[in-house]
């Protein structure tokens, strides 16, 4: 509760939090098919209908309701983004923690591999992975997860190295506490703050990457809907039916803005230096 209050009393947290909240509600509605129309239903007589009371955001070339497809697409992007970030967080945390704790050869090996992965631009690396594994929803989850794992590994390893040398870890070692106890209770628990910030920011990037992959036809496959796919479909009809382009584009933009604002707010709130200044 204290956390929610802190977010909503932070100026950019208020905006970001609200956007993310609405985004999540829309995504959940879309995932459970609670849309105004069936997103796959083709209303042939209403093809390329402009936004109206019946079709809030108009219809596309096949007469499908854009609002319903948008909700479905938001749900799809959200599912991909969240699963990918969750995977990246788990993998990155484990790699970063063990690299920091065991050091030496393992640390060198892990961090050099991460350096190699980080050397590629995110979207290029994702493309490469999909080119090997073939397109599809779950391959794009895997691709995005692999792309963002190095970031989490780095975010975890740095602070873990510094916490490792703190006296309470030495104290734990003098009691003979087990490695897993020290790694989880002493290291991981103290990494919750930087991880939370990183997860929020990574969600924003992974939404963008997902949209990019779908736009290139390598993510979600038709007839399922996704924001990137909707943008791709709208390209040829940009002048006759601008609503096809505008609504998904706005959805992508606002959602990424929301997650970024929320991430910035969390960074301010969880940083002990700024916290002591405002408290």
């Amino acid at each position: 509760m204290g956390m929610l209050r802190a977010i909503f009393s932070h100026p950019s947290g208020r905006i970001g939090g609200t956007i993310v909240l609405i985004y999540v509600v829309v995504a959940v509605l879309g995932l459970f098919d609670l849309t105004p129309h069936n997103p796959l239903q083709q209303y042939r007589i209403d093809r390329l209908h402009a936004p109206s009371i019946v079709y809030w955001m108009g219809t596309d070339l096949f007469g499908r309701d854009v609002a319903s497809r948008l909700m479905k697409g938001v749900g799809q992007s959200f599912l991909v983004g969240v699963s990918a970030v969750a995977l990246a967080t788990i993998a990155g945390t484990i790699l970063g923690l063990t690299a920091a704790w065991f050091g030496r050869l393992w640390d060198g090996l892990v961090m050099r591999i991460m350096d190699v992965l980080l050397a590629f631009p995110a979207i290029l690396l994702a493309l490469l992975i999909i080119a090997i594994a073939g397109p599809g929803t779950w391959t794009s989850v895997a691709a995005i997860a692999i792309v963002y794992t190095p970031i989490f590994t780095r975010v975890v390893r740095g602070p873990a190295l510094s916490i490792k040398s703190r006296e309470f870890v030495d104290a734990a070692r003098t009691f003979g506490s087990s490695k897993s106890y020290i790694l989880t209770r002493h290291l991981l628990l103290n990494l919750v703050a930087p991880l939370t910030v990183q997860v929020t920011l990574a969600l924003a990037w992974s939404l963008l990457t997902e949209a990019g992959l779908s736009f290139l036809g390598l993510g979600t496959q038709p007839p399922a809907s996704s924001l990137g796919l909707m943008l791709a479909d709208s390209r040829n009809l940009m002048e006759t039916a601008p609503w096809l382009l505008i609504f998904p584009a706005i959805a992508i933009m606002i959602s990424i803005l929301g997650f970024n604002l929320l991430g910035d707010a969390l960074r301010d709130i969880l940083d002990p230096k700024t916290r002591s200044r405002t408290a």
């Binding site: 703190r166 006296e167 209770r185």
Partner: peptide, 19 residues
Amino acid sequence: ASLNPRLRIDSILAEPVIA
């Protein structure tokens, strides 16, 4: 620095026993 800031005192005191 010698007490983990994220643990409650009962967890801190329990650690040697668990270890």
